[in-house]
Simulated scan of single mutants.
Amino acid sequence: MVAGVDGRAESLAAAGWAAREAVCKGRPLLLVHVWSRSPFSLVSVAANTAQRSEAERVLNAAADRIAGTCPGLRIETAQVEGPAVTALSRLADGSELLALGRRTKRGMAGLPGGSVARGVISRVKRPVALVRAGEGQERSAEVPRSRDVVLGIDLGHPCVEVIDFAFEEARLRRCGLHVVHVWGDPRPTEGEAQRIGPVEGGCREEERVGLLTAVLKVRRDEYPDVPVIESVRRGNKSSSLPRVADGAGLLVVGHRLGKQSHLGPHGSPTISAVMQHARCPVVVVPYS
């Protein structure tokens, strides 16, 4: 498990969330601070020294905080030179999961309010957790058990990795899993229209209900202790998923690697919406 920390409340929340995940899964936790070397030779030595000193302070403070709530967890720290997207992407691909803080105010940059988080998600082949300030602050190493995991599923691409991740999280948390398929987004793209999935027609919603049940059957048999609720809703995914996940413990969504949209290579409207509006931690699971 890896968590990016920069001293802000969002990153500390992400580190706390990742720590509980690490305890639950029996993994160590690596706390990482990314900084950029000064390009100006006259001030580079002093500036770089100051950045290293600040990075050490931030990392030590985060490690001490986590050690107090997760005794016994093996915590490592590392300073890494930027650019942030490149450094974090490299670390993420070598880990089980990367956790980053998530700002919810539109237009704010930084770690990882918008551009950094989106850039990392667009590159990595491992799950990325996005955590708001206020989450991950429990005074216990236990992962919260009372709130369900919500999985947003695309029946056009029902990826095994995404489904497996959600079922396993629900099992670890000893909670229910609410699987939601939202359909009916206006103006589907040409690529979406060519997907293999439910046929159009008068029984379209009923067919989607049946397809969702069929897609989940194998995993439901493998996870008999995970209560599952299946929902098919007509609407817009970008607005529906954050509403469905309101009050949940975790929202899991998939991200198709290399997918292009009118917002750019990492500008999925659904991912953007859940980053902005979901009130619970979000895990973006990549698939091909």
Results as ranks from 00 to 15, higher is better:
217 K>L: 11
214 A>P: 00
189 T>K: 00
214 A>D: 14
217 K>Y: 02
178 H>K: 15
159 C>D: 15
159 C>P: 00
228 V>W: 08
250 L>M: 14
138 E>R: 13
149 V>Y: 09
147 R>E: 15
228 V>R: 07
164 D>T: 11
231 S>A: 14
215 V>S: 04
172 L>A: 10
205 E>V: 07
156 G>R: 13
187 R>S: 11
133 A>W: 10
225 D>Q: 15
208 R>C: 03
184 G>N: 06
187 R>M: 14
242 P>D: 10
228 V>K: 11
196 I>H: 09
144 P>D: 03
159 C>L: 01
151 L>D: 08
142 E>Q: 14
174 R>K: 14
154 D>S: 07
140 S>A: 11
164 D>P: 04
186 P>G: 07
249 G>I: 07
203 C>F: 05
209 V>Q: 12
212 L>T: 07
227 P>V: 06
154 D>F: 06
152 G>I: 03
129 A>R: 08
204 R>K: 10
132 R>A: 15
231 S>W: 00
205 E>Y: 01
249 G>C: 06
146 S>F: 10
129 A>Q: 08
197 G>D: 12
246 D>T: 04
184 G>V: 05
129 A>D: 09
183 W>P: 01
133 A>S: 15
205 E>N: 02
202 G>H: 10
170 A>V: 03
223 Y>T: 08
221 D>K: 11
137 Q>S: 13
191 G>N: 09
186 P>I: 13
225 D>T: 12
223 Y>L: 09
157 H>L: 12
213 T>K: 14
244 V>M: 02
188 P>G: 11
237 K>P: 15
219 R>Q: 14
222 E>A: 15
188 P>N: 10
189 T>Q: 03
187 R>C: 07
167 F>E: 02
224 P>Q: 00
209 V>H: 09
205 E>M: 13
239 S>C: 02
182 V>Q: 04
166 A>K: 05
201 G>Y: 02
240 S>E: 15
162 V>C: 02
171 R>Q: 11
174 R>G: 03
239 S>E: 11
203 C>E: 13
225 D>N: 12
144 P>S: 03
212 L>H: 04
154 D>H: 06
227 P>K: 05
154 D>Y: 05
231 S>F: 01
141 A>N: 06
208 R>T: 00
169 E>V: 00
131 V>K: 08
246 D>N: 11
165 F>Y: 15
237 K>Y: 00
144 P>M: 03
218 V>W: 06
244 V>F: 13
144 P>I: 06
127 P>K: 08
147 R>W: 02
199 V>P: 10
152 G>Y: 07
191 G>A: 14
190 E>R: 12
173 R>S: 01
128 V>A: 02
231 S>T: 12
240 S>C: 10
135 E>D: 15
194 Q>K: 13
238 S>V: 01
158 P>R: 01
167 F>S: 01
136 G>K: 03
187 R>H: 12
202 G>Y: 09
154 D>V: 07
182 V>T: 04
171 R>T: 01
224 P>E: 02
128 V>H: 06
140 S>R: 12
208 R>W: 03
226 V>W: 11
179 V>T: 11
154 D>K: 06
218 V>R: 14
165 F>V: 01
131 V>R: 07
165 F>T: 03
251 L>N: 04
174 R>N: 09
207 E>C: 04
133 A>T: 09
197 G>W: 15
225 D>Y: 00
192 E>D: 13
128 V>E: 03
171 R>W: 11
211 L>A: 14
237 K>M: 08
209 V>D: 04
152 G>N: 08
250 L>F: 07
234 R>I: 07
201 G>I: 07
